[in-house]
Write a protein that binds this DNA or RNA. Structure first.
Lengths: 346, 346
DNA sequence: TCGAGTGATGAGAACGATCTCACATTTTTA
DNA sequence: TAAAAATGTGAGATCGTTCTCATCACTCGA
């Protein structure tokens, strides 16, 4: 606390410049001076002042992560992927939650830019309002978009194969014999939901099945919203045979609704959720899911960002990481005990 | 990018000092100068350089959060509590994961101090190796410990009522008629586990029951470790009637082990877990848990830290937030269908 | 009419590092 | 042996703010 390079230089009996040379390891320094400076630094417990360093170097060794909600296990895991990747290069991570609100997102980004983060990883909240992100890209500020894509050029985007994943999910349900399949997601402001909806539509189209408007439900990114929409969906005069829940919160919402409404899964309703969670194979029935490489999403985004920060000027690209279907009981994959389950839920 | 207060001053036709006075809002400034500066700042899109500000003010408006693993939903939720609280005061949060390793913890703290964070919220990894934290406290650096306590004076600690919570959990099992109760946690290096063990012991002692060494299992803070210990525990010649899982990962470990080993809950094994998760009431059977005010933990820690940063010199205290037992089926609370469940698991 | 007080301003010194120069001194080369 | 190159060092500018001074113009009361 408070010991500067000047103090070290003074104790070592050299100039500040020489002390700096030793500590930063550049230029010519005599072995004698080197030892004296090291000893002085050790003795005083000298710790370089990062802020002062940033002041002159222009880099803060800090990157910003802007996501909807760090409490969401999906983003938390992604954050870990980012953090683990950058920590080795000496970077730290500032995390901001936007509540999927473009206004909050804008101010979060603004604050991070003022703090001179070296780069930003953003899961953009809106497909429409992203002028603040466009500005960053225009100014060649190091940015990587993650989990979601935007209709802009000149920026790396790391996402999963949403269309294919959703397609696989719905195709899986179709193969199991379900025809009346509902789609449940949060807002279409978020690109991944649009893509997953696209996959849903394609799978139905492939079978020549129509899209039923009343089977398409969207809410906001909370368990409660998922629950509400699920209840509404399942209370309709015509109830779907299956639901494709397009994210983790929606999956929970459906499960809760089904439980409250005494609807047996998969007996009375099949379910496939997008995003794997560690308890999906602990519930009864186990829940079929589309697993995403969440940690890798963060990892790859971080690697790419570090390259951009280092000055890599190669053409930005869209990277798609693969999803994987994990068939379980909720889609009737092992429906041996369907009867008992119906009993049990009652 | 790159427009400084000098540029603003130049455009406004005043000195840097006057521009600074307008922008920071202190001292005497004529209305005319004020308008000119505002207009110039607006026109140039001036954004103050936080690093330069920190350089002179000595505050970075950043706080550090040092936890075992940000991917753990427990810490993620706590982080959100912290973040939401400090964001209103203009603070940002740097998050570091230590993997519950004192070495990593030390270097994380070191890095954050170099970055001149205004304060630290730490969930200490070890009850023994915390000299690096002691140093901070000695130097009067604003620190708040969270979730865990240390045997040191002069620092605020925010934790939950671990002893009481564990006591409630085990007492609940005893009341349900279970006698052979095992204790499963991660390392005793972590204070909360020691406290929960204390609660466990007290509840047994109250009933005059002995502590069985082979029923006490500890591992590391991962689901896999919990699983391994649970399997080992349940494979013993004498299997316990109930398990008290002292944290969220252990709860998952036990559930997975029970499932793999075809042990019916609560028919053949009762379970109470410490820490509530949103899916515990979705599984079958539903899982009895000790709920902790996780978000509030972060909130209170952040509030306290902000006060310390603001110069509050009142005596540091240990704050205990209350836990709450949520009785569910896994402890035989509604054991009407125990028979069927046994059937089902087979 | 003169000092005291108030309003308004700018010059310049911090903050703690990095890094370019200029200037020694030593060693190498022609 | 002189010139060139290599080695070692320190003075001082710089980054973009904040903030203390000193200065000056003006008003007011005695």
């Amino acid at each position: 606390m408070g010991v500067t390079i000047n103090d070290v230089a003074a104790l070592a009996g050299v100039s500040r410049a020489t002390a700096a040379r030793v500590l930063a390891g550049y230029g010519y320094v005599s072995e004698e001076a080197r030892q004296k400076v090291y000893e002085a630094a050790r003795q005083l417990g000298y710790r370089p002042h990062s802020i002062a360093q940033s002041m002159v170097t222009g880099r803060t060794k800090t990157i910003g992560l802007v996501v909807g909600d760090i409490e969401n296990p999906f983003f938390a895991k992604m954050a870990r992927g980012v953090s683990d990747t950058i920590i080795h290069e000496g970077y730290n991570l500032i995390v901001c939650s936007t509540n999927e609100n473009p206004i909050d997102e804008r101010s979060a980004i603004d604050g991070l830019c003022r703090k001179k983060v070296d780069g930003l990883i953003i899961a953009p909240a809106s497909r429409r309002e992203h002028s603040h992100i466009d500005e960053l890209i225009e100014h060649k500020f190091p940015v990587v978009l993650v989990d979601r894509v935007l209709d802009v050029a000149g920026v790396d985007m790391i996402a999963v194969t949403n269309v294919e994943g959703a397609f696989d999910a719905v195709k899986h349900l179709l193969e199991r014999g379900y025809r009346e399949i509902a789609f449940l997601s949060d807002s279409f402001e978020i690109s991944s939901n649009v893509e997953r909806f696209e996959g849903y539509k394609r799978a139905l189209a492939e079978k020549g099945l129509p899209i039923r408007e009343d089977y398409i439900r969207t809410g906001s990114y909370t368990v409660e919203a998922g629950y509400r929409e699920a209840v509404s969906l399942l209370s309709g005069t015509v109830r779907p045979e299956a639901v494709f829940a397009a994210n983790n919160f929606m999956t929970i919402g459906v499960l809760r609704a089904a439980k409250d409404m005494h609807i047996a899964i998969p007996g009375q309703l099949a379910l496939v959720g997008f995003d794997e969670m560690d308890w999906l194979e602990l519930v009864s029935p186990t829940i079929t899911a589309i697993a995403q490489p969440v940690y890798e999403l963060g990892q790859v985004a971080a690697q790419r960002l570090l390259r951009r920060i280092a000055g890599d000027m190669t053409r930005p690209e869209v990277i798609r990481l693969s999803t994987r279907l994990i068939p379980r009981e909720s889609s009737g994959v092992n429906p041996v005990r369907t009867e008992e389950e119906i009993d049990e839920v009652r």
